[in-house]
């Protein structure tokens, strides 16, 4: 449905999107994530036609759209700030695109009402945006996109202005909407929970380049590099300095560990970064590392315990047994299969 071929964006001498290649399948829900300034919103705006493409090609639905005007691309966009027209009612906002297309008032009303029903906005159609709550405004913004029946929906951090509870609700609504409409959706967020829960595939961006594309669980379980490993997952993956002691063995935090299933032979004394997820540090059996608890984040059903296994090697572990307390020494246990190894440049060693 969407093909980005070697797409770049330059502002003056600065390259903000660097030779991006990506194919989005029809009906797919794809999420762009990355830290602030990584270019995820710029890439979305380039697909929308709101930013020019400096080089490369964009194809949508089999047609070359690199230089097409936004309204000729068959895409609709939901903005972070909602961007509702303040002088128009909800119905007028939702029907604006149809009005521009020359759709008659009666037909327009029918289409707006159909979209409003889907989004539970029926009773708000005659209100102005100023008289709506944040969640209602966001639904109107989504409704405005639905009414156009576009080939592709683009969402630019649509939930970031909502409070935590409403964000969860809207997230579920967007997921339902995708299931019912089955349109292609491209969604930008810096919230990895949104990315993990909504996406069919996640695109992780850093400094204008794609670091990895994959299903959420693939990115979580099998990251290509230390950036993706650290970015996906909350709390983030722990990274400990280690050194190879043999072709498939390492020493980390003073303990020798045999790494199973390693395809690469490690060179003796080779420096490695050892990645371990917080939930993998409380295995019932496995390699044991003693930890003095420095901070406890109690969440009720579980706690996150913070401490250090080595100088400049802080770790966080997910703790579900009992109520840990600060100063307590506890054993962390992990299974060697849960280790992820990275070379000093951050590339994954598989």
């Amino acid at each position: 449905m969407i093909d980005l071929r070697n797409v770049s964006k330059r502002f003056g001498g600065m390259t903000v999107i660097d030779r991006v290649n990506l194919s989005v399948e029809e009906g797919e829900f794809i999420v762009f994530v990355g830290p602030s300034g990584c270019g995820k919103s710029t890439l979305l705006r380039m697909i929308a036609g709101l930013e020019d493409i400096s080089s490369g090609d964009l194809w949508i639905g089999g047609e070359r759209m690199t230089d097409a005007e936004p309204y000729d691309r068959g895409v609709a966009m939901v903005f972070q700030s909602y961007a509702l027209y303040p002088h128009m009612t909800v119905a007028e906002n939702m029907g604006f695109a149809l009005r521009i297309q020359g759709v008659g008032a009666a037909e327009r009303r029918r289409m707006v009402e159909a979209a409003a029903t889907k989004l539970h906005l029926d009773h708000l159609l005659d209100r102005k945006p100023a008289a709506l709550s944040g969640g209602q405004r966001q639904r109107v913004a989504i409704g405005r996109a639905i009414v156009r029946d576009p080939k592709v929906f683009l969402f630019d951090e649509p939930l970031s202005n909502l409070d935590a509870e409403l964000r969860v609700q809207m997230r579920i609504e967007i997921a339902r909407l995708h299931q019912s409409l089955s349109n292609t959706m491209v969604y930008v967020t810096h919230d990895q929970t949104e990315a993990m829960t909504l996406a069919d595939r996640i695109v992780v961006l850093r400094a204008g380049r794609i670091e990895q594309v994959g299903r959420p669980t693939d990115l979580y379980d099998d990251p290509d590099n230390i950036f993706v490993a650290g970015f996906i997952g909350s709390p983030r993956m722990n990274f400990l300095p280690g050194v190879a002691t043999g072709p498939a063995s390492i020493r980390v935090a003073g303990v020798d560990v045999q790494v199973p299933g390693l395809g690469t032979r490690l060179a003796r004394e080779q420096a490695v970064q050892v990645g371990l997820r917080p939930e993998h540090l409380t295995a019932p059996e496995g390699v044991e590392l003693p930890l003095a608890i420095e901070v406890v984040e109690q969440l009720g059903a579980m706690a996150y315990v913070h401490g250090s296994l080595a100088p400049e090697a802080p770790v966080v572990a997910e703790w579900r047994a009992g109520r840990p307390s600060v100063g307590e020494r506890v054993p962390l246990r992990f299974h060697p299969r849960d280790l992820r190894l990275f070379d000093p440049e951050g590339r994954r060693i598989r």
Binding site: A48, G49, L50, E69, P70, Y71, V75, A76, M77, F79, Q80, S81, A83, L84, Y85, F96, A97, I100, Q101, R144, R148
Partner: peptide, 11 residues
């Protein structure tokens, strides 16, 4: 964004 939204809406 109002300009951009209107452009996306086909104006």
């Amino acid at each position: 964004e109002l300009l951009e939204a209107a452009r996306m809406d086909g104006a």
